[in-house]
Amino acid sequence: MAKKKTEKIVYGVIWFVTYLVVFMVGYIIFDIVIKGLPAISWGFLTQMPAKSGSQGGILPAIVGTFYLVIGTVAIALPLGIASAIYLNEYSKPSTFTRMIRLGISTLAGVPSIVFGLFGMGLFVLALGFGKSILAGSLTLACMVLPTIIVASEEALKAVPDSMREGSLALGATKWQTIYKNVLPYALPGMLTGSILGIGRAAGETAPIIFTVAATLLPRLPRSIFDQVMALPYHLYMLATQMPNQTTIKPMQYGTAFVLLVIVLGVDVVAIIFRSRLRRKNKW
């Protein structure tokens, strides 16, 4: 019976540890929602920051993050989907293919701050884009590219080979087959998978510090060569670089809340979309 008792204790410990993690997740989200929600007002969302960010709103940071995400998607999505199509539909096992795969997994492991340095060196300085939406988006695109490739490849793999064979047997060329009878079915899966990576781009700070982020820029960007404020960097500034931490607490929580809503909101939409898709696509 001693054995039974030990087992009970072990089960208890396992349960406790697991729900400790759950509790932490819940606590973080709960804390930010509870304290961030009261800080949200129409003015907070639509006004320029005032008094070096300690008052006023966060409109330019929201808009900046929005532009960065759009820019990142516009660059990384076509590139990632094209890569995935090549890898899944065309590539044969070869040294070159292995090198591409190694490149993708290496890229996935590069620390975000290193992307920041790289972006600063290549896009800001060498190519002369300056600290700009363009340089920031390119840097973030490099970072999320592996996520998009992997997600897109999964989606392509989910399309049964019988779709390809059926089309080829009718005399379609390979590209006709992919374009007309594989991509349309894989596209929703590609997009949902990619959204998860794009959510990450919205929340990243380190890659944008040296490539686009402005500490305080109370106006909206006019071109892709403009600097912008961004929510994650703004939160970092508010949380670490300001005196009178207690009085700006609502500003911090409000910013964190908006960032959280954007990142998690995007993810939740993707997850719902994906589960719908799974139910729909029975071949």
């Binding site: 019988s162 064979e165 059926g166």
Partner: peptide, 12 residues
């Protein structure tokens, strides 16, 4: 030369 497969594979 047309082909019909073992498992019916209508396109979605």
């Amino acid at each position: 030369v047309g082909m019909v497969f073992q498992k019916p594979n209508p396109f979605p």
